[in-house]
Every structure is written in structure tokens, then in C-alpha cells.
């Protein structure tokens, strides 16, 4: 807007300071991200010796080779993908149906039902009562315990409901009613197609939530075959355990000890790939989503 040289001294100093501060923060956020990627493409010995500072040293794919040869990683990846896709689909259907129904101004009792949902944002039964419920429903150690509980998040419901209330004019509903359109048909033909933006936001919120969660899996699952990727990541990254027998290549097994650091960096990159793939497509919507949610929080 203004030419820099035309500014007063005070403003010049101010702009210089904020530019420096923000750039510093920007670099602090960015640098570890670049470092992880660089380290994952370096050789195990370079990482171990602390030689990697910014760019890959002794470019090598040994970290990725080990990661892709580890059976647990594949199992986890497959399971996480399943939980994320199926779980998010259920989330979207349940949330949109509830949000649409509760957005209608002509439904007696909707405020009371909304309150039932909102209250769960601030108070819940806690770990053990929920665990006992899952136990009584015979969901322990099944895929369902990661998919069904949490099917509707109160916060996401508020986001979707507010979106529908604010962006879809009631005149459409009136017109549809006059044309003899039923309530369910109105939802399928009018509301859902007009709610693509908020559905994108919900996909991001729920999807990332499923992909990143480990707590429910940790307390409900015992069978290794059902574990999501985060549980294997926890074992490898935090508990320093990688079961050598699950690495199919014996040569790699020997390298393992040497390359522990590089493997971790490669694993971190691999686990981030799905989120980073969908992020650019949904990014433009999600700022909007955060906004909608907070207006009526």
C-alpha cells in the first residue's frame, strides 16, 4: 500500500521489528520440518554422528528401505487407512444428518436435543465408564471400538449446523415444500450439495483425528493385527522397540542397530504423507471451518 521510504521513522522501526520476529518464528517452525526430511534421506552413520544440519548428508534411502520392509508398518498403514476412511464416512453421514435436522427452524424439541450434544463438550463419563460400556457392547478388541464411539463430535456438529443455518436460505426450504419435496429429499437434493465446503472441513477434522489418534486403540485393542499405525509408531519411536523378526530382509536386520535414527526420521515422513496429500485440497476450506465453529462456540 504505502512505499516504505515514505513512512515515518517509528513505522519503519516497527515494520522491521515485526518482519524480523515473524521471520524468526517462521524459520523455527519450518526448520525442524526440513531437517526431518533431510535426515530421512541421509545415511544412518551421518545422522548418528550429528552431521546433518540442513541438507541430506551421504544421500541414502536406507531409512525408507527398512521402513518399507517392516511388516508392522504395512499392517499399521493398512489399518489406519481403513479406520480413517470408514470412520470418517460414518462421521460425515451421522454429523450431516444431525446437523441438517437440528438446523431446521420448524422442528419442536430441537433446542433440547442440541443441548444434549453441546453438554458433552464440557462433561463426560470419563475413561473407565466408557471402557465398561465398550466392554458391555462386546466391542473390545474389534474394529468397531475405533469407529463407532465418537461418531458425532459436538464441536463438528456445531460447525456443520451453523454453516447450514447461515448459508442455505430458508426460502429454498419454502419453495421445496410448496413443490411437495419431502424433508429427506430436501436434505439429499438441496442441503448436501450446497454443503460441500463444510463437508470438506469435516473430512479434514475427522480424518486427521482418526489418522492421528492412538489412545482408544491403546486401551481397547490387544490384537496386533488390528493396531493402527500410531500404535506401531509409539512402539518404534517412543518405546525404542522394533521387532527384528518383522523385518523380512536379514541384511537389513543387521543394519537396523546402526540406522535407528534414520529409520525414525523416515517413519515420521511416511506417517505424515497421507495428511500432507489431502491438506492442500482442503486447506482453502478449513480456515472457514474454524471460523464458523468459533462464532457459535
Amino acid at each position: 500500500m504505502h512505499k516504505f521510504k515514505n513512512l515515518g521513522t517509528n513505522d519503519k522501526i516497527f515494520y522491521v521489528i515485526i518482519t524480523v520476529v515473524l521471520t524468526l518464528f517462521f524459520l523455527i517452525v519450518l526448520y525442524p520440518c526440513i531437517y526431518v526430511i533431510s535426515a530421512s534421506f541421509s545415511s544412518g552413520s551421518a545422522v548418528q554422528a550429528g552431521k546433518v544440519i540442513l541438507w541430506p548428508v551421504d544421500f541414502s534411502l536406507e531409512g525408507y528401505k527398512t521402513v518399507f520392509n517392516t511388516k508392522d508398518v504395512w499392517t499399521g498403514f493398512r489399518n489406519s487407512l481403513f479406520y480413517t476412511v470408514v470412520g470418517t464416512s460414518i462421521n460425515i453421514v451421522m454429523t450431516m444428518v444431525a446437523a441438517y435436522s437440528l438446523s431446521r427452524p420448524d422442528v419442536p424439541g430441537k433446542n433440547g436435543i442440541m443441548l444434549l450434544f453441546t453438554f458433552t463438550m464440557f462433561f463426560n463419563g470419563g475413561m473407565i465408564p466408557t471402557y465398561m460400556l465398550i466392554q458391555n457392547l462386546n466391542m473390545l478388541d474389534t474394529i468397531w471400538c475405533l469407529i463407532i464411539p465418537g461418531a458425532i463430535g459436538a464441536y463438528n456438529l456445531i460447525v456443520a449446523r451453523t454453516f447450514i443455518q447461515n448459508t442455505i436460505p430458508l426460502e429454498l426450504l419454502e419453495a421445496a415444500k410448496i413443490d411437495g419435496c419431502s424433508d429427506i429429499k430436501y436434505m439429499l437434493k438441496i442441503v448436501i450439495p450446497l454443503s460441500k465446503a463444510v463437508i470438506a472441513v469435516l473430512v479434514l477434522f475427522y480424518g486427521v483425528g482418526h489418522w492421528n489418534s492412538y489412545f482408544n486403540a491403546m486401551i481397547y485393542l490387544h490384537t496386533k493385527n488390528l493396531f493402527p499405525l500410531t500404535l506401531f509408531l509409539r512402539q518404534i519411536l517412543l518405546m525404542e522397540q522394533i521387532d527384528p523378526s518383522t523385518i523380512s530382509d536379514p541384511e537389513l536386520q543387521a543394519q537396523m542397530a546402526k540406522a535407528a535414527g534414520v529409520i525414525k526420521y523416515a517413519l515420521i515422513v511416511v506417517s505424515m504423507v497421507p495428511v500432507m496429500l489431502i491438506y492442500p485440497f482442503i486447506q482453502k476450506y478449513f480456515v472457514k471451518g474454524v471460523m464458523i465453529g468459533s462464532i457459535k462456540g
Binding site: 451421522m94 444428518v97 444434549l116 450434544f117 458433552t120 463419563g125 465408564p129 466408557t130 458425532i152
Partner: peptide, 16 residues
């Protein structure tokens, strides 16, 4: 949705 919220949010509250 109503059945869901009662079972998965309010039954555990009763479990308190």
C-alpha cells in the same frame, strides 16, 4: 444420532 449420543455419552455418565 440421538440413540448414539445417549449410548456413548450419557450411559457412561450414568456409569459414574
Amino acid at each position: 444420532p440421538l440413540i448414539y449420543i445417549i449410548i456413548f455419552a450419557y450411559v457412561p455418565m450414568g456409569g459414574l
